[in-house]
């Protein structure tokens, strides 16, 4: 059920990105879609009553140099977290790129409306 709500969030972002006419609204839709996808990937690795994937001294055995079996069976999946961590920062970079394209377009055409921009072509 949380997966379905996350998918609904994605659909709201998609609706905003494909239907709206305002360029800033399209950027906002892309941002909402990005949040939904990140959230979905993290949710896939969640374990009920799990532990964060950070080893501390209570779940580490210094004699053998290995983590305990309890930690191994309680930790959530660290791999999606590592991938999403890079994806969030990339999202900020692409957001800046999109906004600079929007500002440039506004300076040239004087509007954020994409249908007007298409009519002014040529």
């Amino acid at each position: 059920m949380p997966y379905a709500m996350c998918f609904l969030l994605f659909m709201i972002g998609l609706y905003c990105a494909v239907v709206k006419k305002n360029m800033v609204k399209i950027v906002i839709g892309l941002a909402v879609m990005e949040y939904a996808v990140n959230l979905f990937l993290i949710m896939l690795g969640f374990r009920v009553n799990g532990a964060a994937p950070i080893v501390d001294k209570t779940c580490y055995d210094p004699a053998t140099g290995r983590v305990t079996a309890g930690f191994l069976n309680a930790a959530v999946d660290p791999l999606p977290q590592a991938l999403v961590l890079t994806s969030i920062v990339i999202g900020l970079g692409t957001l800046a790129l999109l906004i600079s394209i929007c500002i440039r377009t506004y300076e040239k055409y004087g509007t954020f409306d994409i249908t007007q921009i298409r009519k002014l072509k040529g």
């Binding site: 920062v89 970079g93 906004i99």
Partner: peptide, 20 residues
């Protein structure tokens, strides 16, 4: 790298917006 580049882009946006 991340700190310098994000500062750079916000600085560039600021310069542009103020002129505008």
């Amino acid at each position: 790298k991340v700190g310098a580049s994000l500062f750079l882009v916000i600085f560039a946006l600021s310069v542009f917006c103020n002129d505008f």
